[in-house]
C-alpha cells in the first residue's frame, strides 16, 4: 500500500513538475528574448514607439503592425507606405503569423486569441512591447529568375458575328520580381454566332467576316499591383495584376460570302496590350486571367466581290484596323518550383 501510494504521488508530482518548470522557463525565455528582440529591432531601424508616449494616441487593439509589402530584396525596413486611415494596420500578420511571431518573440496563442492581458502587477498590457512595432516580413512569393509556363484557353469577346475559342500557351522569364518577358501564342477555333445568321435574315445583308487562325507575340509584362486577400477570413491568397504589351503576328482567313469563291489568308503585324490577374495557389502554381487586345490591320473581302479566284479578289480587298479583344484563363506553373531568399529575414 505504501509503495503504491509513493508511486502515485511520484507520478503526480513528476507529471506536474515538467509543465511548471517548462512554463517558468518559457516565461524567462520570453523576457530574455523580448529584450533581445527589442534591441535587435531597434538596431534594424524598425520603428518602435514607446508605449508610454504613444498609448493615448493609439487606437484600441493596434497590437502588432506588420508591413508585409516591402520589396523582397531589401533586408531593412522601409518607411511604412501611407495607406491612409490606418489601412496598413489591417491584415496584420495574415498568414505570416507563425513566421513573424518567433521573429519578434514568442507569442502565446491563447493571449492572441483572448486579446490584451492584464498582468498581475496591474500594468495595462503585458504585450505592450508589441504596440506600434512595425515589421516588414519578406514577400511570400518571389518570381525573379524564375520561368513561368502558362497553358491557357480563351475566347474572343468583341465580335458579335463570329466568336473564336483560343488554345495556347505562354512562357515567361522574370528578370525581376515585377518585370518579365514572354513568348506566347495561340490557335483559334471559329464559331459563327446567331447574330451572323440573323443579320442575313433581318437586315438582308451578309456580313464581311474573317476567321483568325493563329497569333504569336513577344511580350513584356509588368506587375503593377499586388496584394493579398482573405477568403472568408480564413484562407489567404496572394495575387497580382500585371500589364502586358507585345509585338507579333496574326494570321487570318477570309470567309467568302459566296461559298463558291476562294478564300485567302493574311498575315498581319500585331500589337498586343492587355491586363492580367494572377492568384497564387502555391509557390509555383497560379490561376492566371488576362484580357488582351490584339490589334492589327486586317484585309477583308470586298463587299462587291465577283471574282471567284483568291488572287484577283485579294487585290480588291479592303483594309480595316481590328481590335481583337480576348479573355484568357489558364494555370501557370513556375520553375523552379521553389525559391530561396537572398537577403536576411
Amino acid at each position: 500500500m505504501k509503495t503504491w501510494l509513493t508511486t502515485f504521488l511520484t507520478i503526480f508530482v513528476l507529471a506536474l513538475l515538467p509543465q511548471n518548470v517548462s512554463s517558468q522557463a518559457k516565461k524567462k525565455v520570453d523576457k530574455k528574448e523580448t529584450k533581445k528582440d527589442t534591441k535587435k529591432v531597434a538596431e534594424d531601424d524598425i520603428q518602435i514607439e514607446d508605449d508610454s508616449k504613444g498609448t493615448s494616441k493609439k487606437k484600441e487593439g493596434d497590437d502588432i503592425k506588420i508591413e508585409d509589402d516591402a520589396p523582397p530584396t531589401t533586408g531593412k525596413v522601409d518607411t511604412p507606405a501611407k495607406g491612409g486611415d490606418g489601412l496598413d494596420d489591417d491584415l496584420s500578420g495574415l498568414d505570416e503569423k507563425p513566421k513573424t511571431a518567433p521573429k519578434t518573440g514568442p507569442v502565446d496563442p491563447k493571449s492572441v486569441k483572448s486579446g490584451p492581458m492584464k498582468s498581475s502587477s496591474g500594468d495595462s498590457d503585458e504585450r505592450s512591447y508589441w504596440n506600434d512595432i512595425k515589421v516588414v516580413p519578406r514577400k511570400l512569393i518571389l518570381k525573379q529568375n524564375r520561368v513561368e509556363l502558362i497553358p491557357y484557353v480563351g475566347v474572343t469577346i468583341n465580335d458579335n458575328l463570329i466568336r473564336h475559342i483560343l488554345l495556347g500557351g505562354e512562357a515567361a522569364y522574370y528578370i525581376s520580381d515585377a518585370l518579365s518577358f514572354s513568348l506566347g501564342g495561340h490557335a483559334y477555333l471559329k464559331q459563327q454566332t446567331d447574330r451572323a445568321y440573323l443579320t442575313g435574315l433581318q437586315q438582308r445583308t451578309l456580313p464581311t467576316l474573317n476567321a483568325y487562325l493563329w497569333t504569336a507575340t513577344l511580350n513584356a509584362n509588368y506587375e503593377a499591383a499586388y496584394g493579398k486577400m482573405a477568403i472568408h477570413n480564413k484562407k489567404i491568397l496572394q495575387w497580382g495584376i500585371f500589364l502586358s504589351g507585345g509585338l507579333g503576328a496574326t494570321q487570318t482567313e477570309i470567309i467568302p460570302r459566296n461559298a463558291g469563291h476562294e478564300s485567302w489568308t493574311n498575315t498581319n503585324i500585331t500589337i498586343q496590350v492587355g491586363v492580367g490577374f494572377r492568384v497564387f495557389i502555391s509557390k509555383w502554381l497560379t490561376v492566371w486571367l488576362s484580357m488582351r487586345n490584339y490589334m492589327m490591320q486586317d484585309r477583308f473581302e470586298s463587299s462587291d466581290r465577283i471574282e471567284a479566284s483568291a488572287s484577283e479578289a485579294e487585290k480588291a480587298a479592303s483594309g480595316r484596323f481590328i481590335n481583337n479583344i480576348v479573355f484568357q484563363v489558364g494555370l501557370s506553373v513556375f520553375f523552379p518550383t521553389d525559391f530561396e531568399y537572398t537577403t536576411f529575414k
Binding site: D63, L87, D90, L91, S92, D95, V112, A230, N233, K234
Partner: peptide, 8 residues
C-alpha cells in the same frame, strides 16, 4: 483562427 484580426 481568423486569418486577419483587428481589421476594419
Amino acid at each position: 483562427e481568423p486569418a486577419v484580426r483587428k481589421r476594419i
